[in-house]
Design a protein around this nucleic acid. Structure first.
Lengths: 185, 185
DNA sequence: GTCTATAATAGGATAGAC
DNA sequence: GTCTATCCTATTATAGAC
């Protein structure tokens, strides 16, 4: 067998970086911030990310894509009734965004343009996974796409509005409504 | 009469700054960028904005709030039938966000925390203006608030998703659906 | 693999001439 | 009101010892 692709501590660093980038976006986060958050000197960071800060941001974006695939997209492909998938999804979404407290990593990283390919994949694959789940439940694919897109749109929008107003309930009630719409009203 | 509150060229500068801040967010925009966009030297900028960059960002936020009040919130208070107000609103929104091409200034400025008070006002007053318009049309205030919040949520979310996927049609169809929902289906 | 030290650059901001 | 020149700081990044 090939040697186990050692889970280096790079993964732990990336997790710490994710917390920084998701909240501030690319340019707000400095190498000093990263150094403080990880406990590593600036130079050590270049050992893990030879490409510097853009390299870090892209690693974080790919890490987030993997998380979303595992926690959200894969479960949506299960061969079980639709409502049995939607409820867990809304719970996972609630958890992934800390009940509306944690901003969307995609939304905050987009303006910088760094690592935009995995960022785009997160949104595209999310809509795709939802569409497929709805289609499996007997909904026409065209209607499924509309519903799926609307769900992701509302989740992203609720995060923005909740942050702007300081009212997390906007996120909670949006999630509830989305779940009801997707599961079939 | 009081002398006309001279429309100094500060307004023109603020308009140029708005274009920069809305796209990049606070930290991406440097004084050099601003200098290039306005044609003014860095020092001249401090003549108009003694508080420096934060001062500029807050001026831009207040300018945007004024624009939103004029173009969106005030028309919603008119004493005409609801559908006659919703259609113009969606058209104005389409124009204000360039059909989904131009990002939301609020969403992109929020992470920095600079000028958050007018930014919050933009969202809060928007929801309030929509709620009032729906209430005037005979919808119960509690239901009106839910509908109004959902509309703003979907506009904000559609901008994020359209930007992430590179597909402006997401914004166009979201606007159409929102208009239909608000005008009474 | 992590550190200290340092380079090279760009950032925001100010002083003062015109 | 706009400019040139300058200051100070923070930034990303690299070199090289351990």
């Amino acid at each position: 067998m090939t040697p186990k692709s050692a889970p280096s501590s790079r993964d732990e660093i990336v997790t710490a970086l994710f917390g920084l980038f998701r909240r501030g976006g690319y340019d707000v986060v400095s190498l000093s911030d990263i150094s403080a958050a990880t406990g590593l000197g600036k130079s050590s960071l270049y050992h893990y990310f030879p490409g510097g800060k853009p390299d870090m941001a892209e690693a974080v974006a790919n890490h987030r894509l993997a998380t979303m695939r595992e926690k959200l997209f894969a479960p949506l492909a299960a061969e079980i009734p639709l409502p049995a998938k939607i409820a867990p999804m809304t719970r996972s979404v609630d958890s992934l965004y800390a009940g509306g407290d944690a901003p969307c990593h995609v939304a905050n990283m987009l303006p910088s343009g760094v690592g935009s390919s995995p960022l785009k994949a997160i949104i595209v694959e999310w809509i795709e996974a939802l569409s497929e789940a709805l289609k499996q439940a007997g909904i026409k694919i065209s209607a499924a796409r509309v519903l799926a897109t609307d769900a992701v749109v509302r989740i992203e929008g609720a995060l923005v509005v909740a942050k702007a107003t300081g009212d997390k309930r906007v996120f909670a009630s949006a999630l509830r409504d989305i779940g009801a719409d997707l599961a079939g009203r």
